[in-house]
């Protein structure tokens, strides 16, 4: 969507997907994360640092909540009443959920964050003025603000040589967040375009999904009905733009799919599969 489009359709833009959305989508990238396979090992998170030029902020700034981990593993203890957590820890890989009706978008005063025809919640660094309204409005707390310029502290020579040239290094005053590895999407789309074909399922693999030792993360296009991710969403009866759906036959079927904060009607693009524990 161009700036022109954003300005002309500003009011449509504020309507969520429940009112029909505002896009003719080309793709709708989405994920399915099986929490029963997530072991909380941090491979995805570190892969994200490597792929996306994430700054290392150091101990003090981390303490102030300024860490830039686009993909973070949250760890919860569920059995707080017990002497020991007998069912282990609950790990949650959390990153931008690329909401279909994202709460961050309408509050941006300069339309630096907007929805792309790929169904991605884009962040245009050059346009960002650092108001931080978006991160305040994000229910998932997955937007990260550059309070400092990290270029010199995070990549002392020769570390800067590792930086991925396909993605910018963000500077002070700019908001950033998970992009679903848009640079990888872009590369694959360019390749498909050059070969006069459409993007195949499994062609785009974000860094986190590629690294994950247990293959807990599946990525794909929900507009492609044959894609693995589409089938997973369908199997678990999770649908775009449909909220708090009473799942059919919940008691009889493996319907573990859910989206976090579904009740907020933000239409996240990440479906999680419930963690399973055998009570013995």
């Amino acid at each position: 969507m161009s700036l022109d489009n954003i300005l002309n359709h500003w009011s449509d833009y504020r309507k969520g997907a429940e009112e029909g959305g505002h896009h003719d989508y080309e793709h709708r990238w989405a994920m399915a994360i099986n929490l029963d396979l997530c072991i909380g090992c941090n491979a995805c998170s570190t892969a994200c640092y490597a792929e996306n030029n994430l700054a290392v902020v150091g101990k003090e700034k981390f303490e102030r909540g300024q860490a830039m981990h686009w993909m973070r593993i949250e760890r919860y203890w569920d059995q707080q009443e017990l002497e020991h957590p007998e069912q282990g820890a609950s790990f949650l890989p959390m990153m931008c959920q690329q909401c279909g009706a994202a709460t961050c978008e309408p509050v941006c005063p300069v339309a630096a964050t907007y929805h792309t025809p790929d169904g991605l919640n884009a962040q245009v660094y050059n346009r960002c003025i650092g108001s931080r309204y978006c991160s305040n409005n994000c229910p998932f707390r997955v937007r990260y603000f550059n309070f400092y310029s990290y270029y010199e502290s995070s990549w002392p020579e020769p570390m800067e040589q590792q930086l991925n040239p396909d993605i910018s290094v963000r500077d002070k005053g700019v908001m950033e967040k998970c992009t679903f590895c848009v640079q990888r999407i872009r590369t694959v789309k360019d390749k498909a375009f050059m070969e006069d074909r459409s993007v195949q399922d499994g062609e785009v693999v974000p860094a986190c999904a590629q690294a994950c030792p247990t293959s807990a993360i599946v990525f794909g296009d929900t507009m492609d009905e044959g894609s693995v991710v589409s089938k997973l969403w369908k199997k678990h009866q999770v649908e775009r733009g449909v909220y708090q759906k009473t799942k059919l036959a919940k008691k009889d079927a493996d319907l573990r799919g859910y989206r976090i904060f579904e009740e907020l009607n933000v239409d996240p693009s990440v479906m999680y599969l419930e963690r399973v524990r055998e009570d013995i």
């Binding site: 981390f62 009889d252 976090i260 009570d279």
Partner: peptide, 29 residues
């Protein structure tokens, strides 16, 4: 000591973040 914050300490405080289901949920199907 610096730890990654997870909101209200280590608890999900009733939010539906990580949902745990019994194995029967999978096994039945």
């Amino acid at each position: 000591i610096v730890r990654m914050g997870t909101g209200a300490g280590d608890s999900q405080v009733g939010r539906k973040l990580v949902v745990t289901v019994p194995v029967e949920q999978v096994r039945r199907t």
